[in-house]
Amino acid sequence: MKPFTFSNRVLGAAVGVLAVVYLYLAFTLEEFTAVSVPVQPATLPKWLGAVLLVLAAVLFFQKQEDTGEQAGSDGDGDEASKTGGGAPARPAAARPALGRLADPRHELALFAASIGLYIALLEPLGFLISTTAYIAATTWYLGYRRHWANALVAVGVSAVLYFAMSDFLRVALPTGPLPF
């Protein structure tokens, strides 16, 4: 039900590893001796690493809370499905589902990869081409059927953003092979 959710054991261990690596890096920071300073650049990092290690241990041994209890202060993924405005639960095709893959984990990985591709192509292809292509492709993939509207939005949004930034505000976005 919840992709990428792990037990406190796993999370504690992961945070612990992060703390150890960070502590190692903190201890490799050179002492600053040229001018006398009361607090070394490595001092706070060492303390932070140590505190994080302790917190990781606490988390590791903490008993698992109910998953339902996890609603964080800034809107948790699952809570929303309960507040979904009276619509029937997920399985029914009450509204067009996003995406095409059965496993949400694959879907998320693919989505992250698509953003990566967009970022990688932003400068070589220029803002206009890459953004238009990205919007059009993603919208189509996610299952939007009105292709003309899609094309219009893709071209329109990229063009408006591009010309507003580069001509009006004089912020140079990558142009790519296009002459403007």
Binding site: E123, P124, P174, T175, G176, P177, L178, P179
Partner: peptide
């Protein structure tokens, strides 16, 4: 790369 290509455009 991108900007060099831009420059080529003109």
């Amino acid at each position: 790369l991108a900007l060099a290509a831009t420059a080529c455009g003109t």
